[in-house]
Simulated assay, not measured.
Amino acid sequence: MVDSVQRTAEPAIGPVNHDKPRRRFRRKLNSYTGAPLLMISINLVLFALFFVWPAAIGLGYSFTSYTGIGDAPFVGTDNYTKLFADPAFWAALKRTLIYTASVVPLSFVAALGTAYLLVSPYTKGKSVARVVFFLPWLISPIIVGVIWRWLFGENFGLVNFIIEKFGGSAVSWQSNGDLSLIVVIVAATWAGTAFNMLLFIAALKNVPVSYYEAADLDGANAWQKFRRITLPAIAPTSFIVILLSTLHTMKEYSLIVAVNAGGPGTENNLIVQYIYSTGFRKAQIGYASAASFILLLILMVIALVQMLANRRKGN
């Protein structure tokens, strides 16, 4: 009787189908992995084509005395040795750091303050204000530079015209290196506030209203709510804004050229202007490639430091 039970039970179990897990895995691979891999592969191809390959070529040129024509004789690390001994390179790097350390905090405060006002329920005309505040982002950096050059021109600028109309003397906005840099900093802050403002508006709208209601019940004032609730809630957006603003400002070129062309003289040449002048005007492609690679390393270090700092704060 036991044998008959076993015989009748055996067909119910049947042979194990090993193809089902494979089909299930293939189905999961196709539905959850295939499309993302396809999208990532397109980005990887574009990244390798327009960044990795040119960077590799530039790195190779940095060890040569290539002038843009003919052969590229190998010179080893001579370009880097000359670069670190070049006072013009250090002056351009110093000016770039001053420019970045000024523009990034100013644009951060201006963008956050503007966004905070535009999401406030007490602000009137917010729709029109958003359009007006976003207009600078729609203008080309060259046009932005021309506008501010017209405003702060020494002989034809609107600001000096108003000053002289009220009995003052014209200010040397272009011939004074420090004043010329201040004009560029203000122009860059005005132009870069719009995009950061949109990021902060989205972040502020995502802060739960219940947090503020609980703070009101506890008797918190506006500054305490902003410090204890708003700033921690928008910390990820703040990190993105600071990171992108820093990287963009360190690579600024067109705005500087349009406002003062790095002047007076070469006093306000930033690092990108130094690279352009060395590579294309002086035909020292190998030397300029070395400077470009140093700039790339500086940007990578800045990005890594900010990412590590943000991760520690998150922990």
Rank of each mutant, 00 (worst) to 15 (best):
D71Q: 04
F74M: 14
E213D: 15
F89W: 13
G265Q: 07
P87F: 09
V75R: 01
I201C: 05
V171Q: 09
P15Q: 12
L217G: 02
V305M: 00
A110P: 07
D71V: 12
N260G: 09
W53L: 03
D19R: 07
K124P: 03
I242V: 15
K126N: 10
P21R: 06
G192E: 11
P36C: 08
T33S: 09
T193S: 10
I201Y: 11
Y116H: 05
F280N: 05
A56W: 03
G60I: 11
A111R: 10
S107F: 11
S140D: 08
Y122D: 12
D218I: 03
W173Q: 07
S31E: 15
S120N: 15
G262K: 04
L295V: 06
G219L: 13
K82M: 13
F195E: 09
L118F: 04
K82Q: 12
Y287P: 00
I139N: 06
L138S: 10
R312C: 11
L46I: 02
N260W: 02
I98T: 02
D218Y: 10
Y287E: 05
V301C: 09
D71K: 14
S65G: 13
T230V: 11
A56T: 08
D71R: 08
M307V: 09
T100S: 05
D3W: 05
L93T: 14
G177C: 06
L179G: 01
S180V: 06
V16E: 04
V119P: 02
L255E: 03
A283S: 03
S245Y: 13
F280A: 09
G58D: 04
S41Q: 02
I294N: 12
I142Q: 11
N269R: 06
R27A: 15
K251V: 11
R281S: 14
K94S: 12
S175Q: 14
M300D: 04
L83R: 05
A187P: 01
A92M: 09
T114F: 10
V45C: 05
Y122K: 13
F108P: 11
I163S: 07
V144E: 07
G145V: 12
A101G: 04
Y32N: 12
Q273L: 04
V146P: 08
I142S: 11
V184T: 14
W150Q: 11
I57S: 00
F50K: 04
R228Y: 07
V184D: 08
N310W: 01
G34Y: 12
R95L: 13
R26W: 15
W148A: 01
L49N: 06
N160D: 04
V159F: 02
F280D: 01
I201G: 13
F74W: 15
S175P: 02
G14M: 01
A85K: 09
E154T: 05
V132T: 06
L112A: 03
G192N: 10
A191Y: 04
G219W: 11
G262P: 03
D218E: 14
P208T: 13
A283L: 01
L297S: 02
G279W: 02
L199E: 05
L299S: 10
E252H: 06
P121Y: 04
K28Q: 13
P21C: 01
